[in-house]
Simulated assay, not measured.
Amino acid sequence: MGKRFWVGGYSPDGGGTSLGIRAIEISRGLLTDLGLAHAADSPSWLATHPKLPVLYAALEHRGEIAAYRIMDKDKLESLGKPVAAGPMVCHLAVAGAGTVLIASCYGDGRVLAYPINADGSLAKPTIAPASTDPFASPGHHPRASRAHQGTALRSGKIVTTDLGHDSLRMWDLVGGELRLHRQVALRKGDGPRHLVEHPSGLIYVVTEHSAQVIALAVNAAGEWQEVSRDSLGDGILAGEHFPAEISLDRHTNKLYVGVRGARAISVLELKGGRPVVLGAVPCAGEWPRHHLQVGNSLLVANQLSNTIEVLGLGPEDGLPLKHLNSLALDSPTCIVAQMPS
């Protein structure tokens, strides 16, 4: 038996051709399309519950979140009606040991916390305090807040990125609500998109606008500070290429970053915690919006070339140089394992 995944994508309301959430399987490096699991409008981001057979989807251009009961390897059933979120809800993360769903909205910067009921359905959310632009100044036009990702850290805190305000916000999850602990400003114009936490406690943030990876650590005073800032390769240029997903290798010694516009996956080795570029490797498609490591392979969702690609990782350097398989799939934007790891 192979490993199975749910795939979200953009439908016509988001400029794509996807019909909804699909199920796929990989076995011995070969991908199989298991069919349409449930029709949906631009389910651009997906998240599974860690304990319940429930899948959540951000219906980005409807500004709603849908919950589905997992019926089989290739079938989903609606778990109630979609619930309201905010404009361009683009990311979901289950936190609090499965008790809360965190939603990030690119359209207005809104971050919401939905209590999760016993059956996996969503209760009425609380809205976190709005972001304050750390670079705001009198006489200048205010910049829009653009929430893009929420992540549960090992400490139990939640961190959210704000691509528009060039900052991260750390939150305490108290009674299912988000309470602001600290805001961490990066540099103006960075555009932090997604991040990943290393077992060492370091956080690696990929920036969409400056096209870099920033490492953050907690100093002796308990404050988060930038400890390194590195490019994604000589050919990756800010303003021309747009980093998307960042992930940590299963051996925790490398980072993989999909770079839209460059048709590439950048690979960075962690040396003393600092990312050092090993290379930017072709992703066998166009607009690598998301990727996921599966054993010694990398699955890449190439949104604009309408494929999921399987790239074999080198046993020594981890570079995804071997093209193993390709599966035609409309406008894929997110891949999530059916069984949480």
Rank of each mutant, 00 (worst) to 15 (best):
V206N: 03
F242C: 09
D230E: 14
F242T: 10
L216H: 08
H251Y: 15
R229M: 02
P199N: 11
Y204N: 06
L195P: 06
N219V: 05
R229V: 07
E197T: 15
R187K: 15
R250H: 12
D249Q: 13
A211T: 11
H209Y: 10
S247T: 12
Y204S: 03
D190S: 00
E223K: 06
Q212C: 07
S200M: 12
V196M: 12
S200G: 14
I236V: 03
S228F: 06
V213D: 01
V227K: 00
P199E: 10
L232S: 07
E208T: 04
G189E: 01
A211I: 05
L248E: 05
P192V: 05
P243F: 08
Q183C: 03
E223M: 12
F242K: 11
L237Q: 11
Y204I: 10
A221F: 08
I203G: 10
I236H: 00
D249W: 12
P243D: 05
I203M: 09
D230I: 12
P243M: 07
L195Q: 06
G191Y: 03
N219H: 07
A215H: 03
A211H: 01
W224R: 05
T207A: 11
L195A: 06
G222L: 13
R250M: 12
S231D: 01
G233P: 04
V257C: 08
A215L: 09
S247W: 11
A217G: 01
D234V: 15
L255C: 01
S228T: 00
H194T: 02
L232R: 07
P192A: 11
E223Q: 09
N253D: 13
L237P: 07
D190C: 04
S247Q: 11
V206Y: 06
L195R: 08
I203Y: 06
G239Y: 15
K188V: 13
R250E: 11
